[in-house]
Amino acid sequence: MICAVASGKGGTGKTFISSTMATAWKGELTLFDCDVEEPNARLFLKAETESVEEIGSEHPYLSDSHCNGCGRCASLCRFNAIMHSKGKKPLFFTELCHSCGTCMTLCPEKAIGRFVETSGTLETAHRGTMKILTGRLKTGNPLAAPLIKKILKKLDRTEENIIDCPPGTSCPFIAAVSPADYVILVTEETPFGLHDMQIAAEVLEILRKPFGIVVNKTENRVFHELNDFINKKKIEVLGRIPWSLETAQCLSRGELPEEKYSDTFAEIHLKAREDFQRKRGASL
């Protein structure tokens, strides 16, 4: 199964949960750290990077001898990534390019080819039977989603995978949850957490992704709005993790309280698998 761990809000404990869940799995598993702006699962897991691979995006380049300066590419590009002035050859701004391929496909002279520019790296590390693949966006590169898509091409559907997603609900989030079978949304029992989780849930509904939630840092109080939302939408609650100062301190040192949560997360993972099977059965 491919299980993505996501949260609309930052700082809900997404990496803590995905990493600990990965350590609790008995058997082979690949953890994809797709929080490419700030990947830190590997740091928590204390695994040394073994190899680094450059990941690139395809961008247009011009074959000067074929170009007749017609400027069609510039008028087609919806991302304003091509400058053209009459009688001159076009100028490409790869930093604005979405790699959509429109200019290459539609150039009447077939004068535009592709070149690959590095947009980030993929680092491989191991810890026991766990493989950790970390995506890292090159600093200054604003487009995280293409890099995430490229990294997730490495997913092996026949095996067990966990994806640690980027926060938010925009393109990088969508890129990370798209290949997943099931999404675990991590939320907090606060109006902030609920609001952001609702937005994430809305996106997952559009994408028709089955999901369940984990409520992290719970305290002894009743949050009616959250409960109402869960009941109304019939959302599966996979687990509740009580707030603990000890855990917060442990994480602040960059350490995972693995043993303490091993059973809890094994159970959450199991529940997620069951919920996935059930929902898949219902949709067939």
Binding site: F79, N80, A81, M83, H84, S85, K86, F93, L96
Partner: peptide, 13 residues
């Protein structure tokens, strides 16, 4: 949405 400077440059030309 993006590339305003380049679009403006095209308009100048």
């Amino acid at each position: 949405a993006q590339g305003a400077g380049i679009q403006a440059a095209r308009n100048i030309v």
